[in-house]
Design a protein around this nucleic acid. Structure first.
Lengths: 162, 162
DNA sequence: TATTGACTTCGAGTTACTCGAATACTTTAT
DNA sequence: ATAAAGTATTCGAGTAACTCGAAGTCAATA
């Protein structure tokens, strides 16, 4: 962290090229106050420092991990407020960790499903073309059979006018 | 797959309770033609069969895994069309597998980030309350340092009117 | 008969972008 | 000197996939 760290030097276009975010998104994040301290040049144009870049990276990282913008805002507000918000910030981070882990579990599950489906399509392609697994006819989509609650299973309610 | 498999017997509410999807979402999917063959009772009310449930599960699974509705529609159209679409269906599935794997990699990366942040907050909470890692001051958010392209790094362009 | 509850459609609201138009300014080319 | 490029700005509309609530219809129950 040298003295050039806070020196404003990157235009929106630069930041876009560095981070891979679109110029639109960068402006949008700035408009939403997700990057405090962004300065402007003598006219009106945004200028980002390395510090701003770091900050944007953090915001981007939060967003990728699925934290809503409102929560990112909340986290930022806490950072700006001071040390007394540390416990709450830690809480937010811990919660987000849980959510990410849940997401990864869910996606791994879906990956299993898709692999099964893929295996089926491969078997059908290499062997004879017998599309019995077509969901139109028969749909073994979900390996895990879903449970139908007793009160629904036992009491089908079809109301047909006599 | 017995003969009751295609018998319409579940109301929207039933399906909601069985699948966990909201009634709104179920109707939305039906409106979007994501569940072919859904029947209606003598009046106007939707009635779902076990087959429809399976189908809805498939759609739900696709959606969870991030496949856009337009693609789900495309997949369905192909299923309805017949065996000649099998190669293209297989392609779609393979592509979606890749996307899921990429997503899982990305989320694992984000999980690493969040774990680092969490560790920091834990160290700060148990030890002395020294919030030097507050991004306001210094933001080691991104373990991996980002590269600033040479042409940007070397030519800082600050235009200040004289 | 009135209330309850479940169904319907429809239209508006939400989130997080995403895109394009209108406009302003500087730099470069003619 | 002026025109064309290039980059910047704001602003308003569009998009995806829900999400919600209002208004209306009908059947069963109190």
């Amino acid at each position: 962290m040298d003295q050039t760290f806070h020196e404003p030097k990157y235009s929106v276009k630069d930041v876009s090229e560095i981070t891979g975010l679109t110029k639109h998104t960068i402006r949008y994040y700035d408009d939403q106050q997700l990057i405090p301290f962004v300065s402007r040049d003598a006219r009106i144009n945004r200028l980002f420092s390395d510090h701003d870049l770091d900050w944007l990276r953090m915001v981007h990282s939060f967003r990728i991990s699925g934290l809503p913008i409102s929560e990112v805002k909340h986290y930022i507000a806490m950072c700006l407020q001071g040390d007394e918000t540390i416990p709450e910030r830690a809480e937010l981070i811990a919660k987000q960790e849980k959510e990410l882990e849940a997401k990864i579990r869910e996606y791994n599950l879906q990956l299993m499903h898709i692999k099964k489906k893929k295996a089926y399509y491969e078997s059908v392609s290499t062997g004879q073309l017998d599309d019995t697994w077509n969901p139109v006819n028969n749909n073994p989509e979900c390996g895990e059979k879903y449970d139908i609650p007793e009160h629904i299973k036992s009491a089908p309610k079809v109301h047909v006018r006599a």
